[in-house]
């Protein structure tokens, strides 16, 4: 065998390796993964209850924590298994059961204020993450059912325990269903 050919082959391979290595190194340093868009995509899968059961102050902070690897995908009881599966698919990870430490999934619920007991203290208003409670000091408060996410954050501040959670009204039963006559 021609020794010259071996030398040439080794040189070519080495040159290729060096070139590709440099290119990859440069890419790793200069082309950062688009962290923001990943957070957006994770956030889009979360149920937006803003309940804080994941111990982050809202869904987007949790999404950011998942994106930078600080939190696992099993911390969202309101989203349930469906959300875990969707997150697993997005991030190409194996789905895992929800971590019971962060609560158990429950049927959707909404807050309801017993107007007979409400004293109009307005302490629940700032607690609501989605501004779904209408009221003012010394006025009876009420929850906008359509916008309530059932996060339960308004329960602790209430001094008279007049807020309770009720099953959320079903999403409209009606769906487009033309029929043959």
């Amino acid at each position: 065998m021609n020794p010259g050919a071996i030398v040439v082959a080794v040189l070519v391979a080495a040159a290729l390796a060096v070139t590709l290595g440099v290119a990859l190194g440069w890419a790793a340093a200069h082309i950062e993964p688009d962290a923001d868009s990943l957070v957006e995509r994770i956030d889009a899968l979360l149920p937006q209850t803003q309940c804080g059961q994941c111990r982050y102050p809202g869904c987007r902070p949790y999404a950011a924590a998942i994106a930078n690897g600080a939190a696992e995908i099993d911390r969202c009881p309101p989203g349930g298994e469906v959300t875990v599966r969707a997150l697993a698919a997005l991030l190409d990870r194996a789905p895992r059961p929800l971590d019971p430490e962060f609560g158990a999934p429950a049927p959707a619920q909404v807050a309801w204020i017993d107007e007979a007991k409400c004293i109009g203290c307005a302490r629940c208003l700032p607690a609501c993450p989605v501004d779904a409670i209408v009221g003012a000091s010394r006025q009876i408060h009420t929850v906008i059912t359509l916008q309530c996410t059932g996060c339960e954050l308004c329960l602790p501040p209430c001094p008279v325990d007049c807020i309770e959670l009720r099953p959320a009204p079903a999403v409209s039963q009606r769906y487009s269903q033309p029929r043959a006559a």
């Binding site: 149920p47 809202g58 989605v130 779904a132 409209s172 769906y175």
Partner: peptide, 18 residues
Amino acid sequence: LHEAEAMARKAADARERH
């Protein structure tokens, strides 16, 4: 499908309000 779309709309609404 209808339910999922309703949930997605509600989530988007909650996100915006938050």
